[in-house]
Design a protein around this nucleic acid. Structure first.
Length: 516
RNA sequence: GGGCCUGUAGCUCAGCUAGGUAGAGCAUCUGGCUUUUAACCAGGUGGCCAAGGGUUCGAAUCCCUUCAGGCCCGCCA
């Protein structure tokens, strides 16, 4: 059984409405690992629905969380915002409502592309509108119990005057620098490091925030959460999950949600980029270079507790190939290989939107990577494909959109991540090269040969061999000459296919110019 | 110190949530092909499933122990 079905069955033992939650703090570019959280939850959600369960998928953005420090990608001037809720901080680019929105919006757009449609909650709105008020009051009334729970389970010593609430200073706006001096419902008196002191009324929303270890369980109760996965960093003994379970059950009188712990996604082949420079692969980049169904496949094909290595180099092409193979097996165009597990479910869960009813037209992704370097954009690529009869004339709109989308991903990948060995550029003019006598001889026969053939890959391929043999020129030299003249480099894609994808007249004209 | 994951062919891994003949890709070898962006086609070689014990008619698969590696936690969230 597929892992998502196993989790769904577990939930279905309780016959009630299930709220499946994901929560990510938009304090920086949304990370590749966060993709796993949302796709893991979505997979369970879909399984629940397909089994007839009543379920809702929600996403809580904790945008009331405070800025921890000035991250490397922020200007130094952000120093003054450290400690303030990220929804109160101005947007780094100036085009969004707040710092939080800046990162949140791009993530929400990404969700659309991978076909995840959760109900969105924003913590800052929940606090400000007063949704949290009851939870805050209950927490404050149970300060000692909560303190004991946290100290016992996390083995951490809390300050004597600790209360489960961080007041936001009404002068400097920070929630990290205040200290409560007196609580008498509904008022909290506080002093702040900035020199300010004052009093807040917790019946007014947004005057402060529950600390994380209390905020999380309070949210479970408030939103009736029944399932929420989290990364292995939170799953540790004595961590927020452990204290949260105790707090939600003892203080908020609500059963702790079921969960799954997921492993992190590592990056491969990026060398300096992720470790030394401290720049991680953002969800946005991940999505720009990976077709959405392939990204979903990466997650659904692996158990959550399995650590994944994402290879943004040539490995990405293999991943796409693997997905395409799964698709062929799903539609019975190919035999399944032994050990292919839950292939039907995996394929279905990999679809961002509707599951295709018939086998979608496939074009090898590697070939697309070559074509997009000849055609630059989809319309050009499409012309080539039609001319060379590599796609049928009656391609459906969906199939065309799918191919188009894939060329866009391939294109982004080529720009940002592809190794040089797969890159080339059809030069606008004849590159400056000194051709040997041998090469000129070969090219002359080759041009003649080309003029008389039908412009098809195999014919072109044969023409290369015929011409090189005729004058007894090494085949390596023949290939090299062609690549030099068209691409300005010594190697290139399989020559016959490659040339046949270019315009015949263009090729002949270019070759003639080169030997002039 | 604690937790999670991993250990299967030379390499990367699937198979473990159905206990029932050990699987793929790459590499290698053979044959074919007028070698071209990790070429293609057909076939072959290759494994004491980390080690030891247990459960079972039967274990890569379930349980226990040991060894080895990776990651996370032991600031804050």
């Amino acid at each position: 059984m597929h892992w998502a079905d196993v989790l769904a069955d577990e939930l279905l033992k309780e016959n009630k409405k299930h709220i499946l939650a994901t929560g990510i703090t938009p304090s920086g570019p949304i990370h590749i690992g966060n993709m796993r959280e949302i796709l893991t939850t979505d997979a369970v959600y879909r399984c629940l629905l397909s089994k007839g369960g009543d379920a809702e998928l929600i996403y809580v953005a904790d945008d009331f969380d405070h800025l921890r420090k000035v991250y490397p990608y922020l200007p130094n001037s952000y120093d003054k915002y450290v400690g303030m809720p990220i929804s109160d901080i101005p947007c780094p680019c100036g085009n969004h409502k707040s710092y939080a929105d800046h990162y949140l919006i791009s993530f929400l757009n990404a969700l659309k592309e991978i076909g995840v449609k959760p109900k969105i909650y924003r913590a800052n709105e929940m606090y400000k509108s007063g949704n949290y008020n009851d939870a805050i009051q209950i927490a404050l009334e149970n300060t000692n119990k909560i303190k004991e729970i946290i100290q016992k389970i996390s083995k951490r010593e809390l300050p004597k005057d600790w209360i489960p609430f961080n007041v936001k200073c009404d002068k400097c706006g920070r929630i990290t620098s205040t200290k409560a001096t007196l609580y008498e419902y509904p008022f909290i008196e506080y002093i702040c490091d900035c020199g300010n002191s004052g009093e807040v009324d917790i019946k007014n929303g947004g005057v402060g925030k529950l600390p994380w270890r209390v905020d999380w369980p309070a949210r479970w109760k408030m939103l009736n959460v029944t399932f929420e996965p989290f990364g292995k960093d939170l799953g540790t003994v004595g961590g927020a999950r452990d204290t949260g379970k105790e707090i939600v059950e003892k203080i908020y009188d609500y059963p702790a949600p079921k969960y799954a712990v997921y492993e992190f996604i590592m990056l491969k082949g990026m060398g300096a980029m992720h470790s030394s420079k401290g720049t991680a692969l953002s969800a946005e980049e991940l999505l720009n270079m990976t077709p959405p169904e392939v990204l979903r496949f990466l997650i659904t094909n692996n158990q959550p507790d399995k650590h994944l290595v994402f290879d943004s180099g040539l490995g990405l092409l293999n991943l796409v190939d693997e997905y395409d193979k799964l698709e062929r097996v799903y539609f019975e165009k190919e035999e399944a290989i032994k050990g292919m597990k839950d292939l039907k479910k995996t394929y279905e869960l990999s679809q961002p939107y509707d599951i295709p009813k018939t086998f979608p037209f496939q074009l090898p992704y590697r070939h697309l990577v070559t074509l997009i370097q000849i055609g630059q954009e989809w319309n050009e690529v499409k012309k080539i494909l039609l001319r060379t009869k590599q796609i049928p004339k009656d391609l459906t709109k969906d199939e065309e959109n799918h191919l188009k989308q894939r060329t866009e991903h391939a294109s982004y990948w080529l720009d940002k991540f592809a190794p040089d060995m797969v890159k080339f550029e059809v030069k606008k003019k004849v590159p400056k090269i000194d051709l040997t006598e041998e090469q000129v001889k070969f090219l002359s026969s080759f041009i003649k040969k080309l003029s008389s053939i039908d412009w098809e890959a195999e014919n072109v391929h044969n023409a290369i061999y015929d011409s090189s043999q005729k004058d007894n020129i090494p085949i390596k030299t023949a290939f090299k000459s062609i690549y030099q003249i068209i691409l300005g480099q010594e190697k290139g894609p399989r020559a016959g296919y490659f040339l046949s994808n270019l315009d015949k007249e263009f090729v002949i004209k270019r070759l003639k110019e080169a030997i002039k």
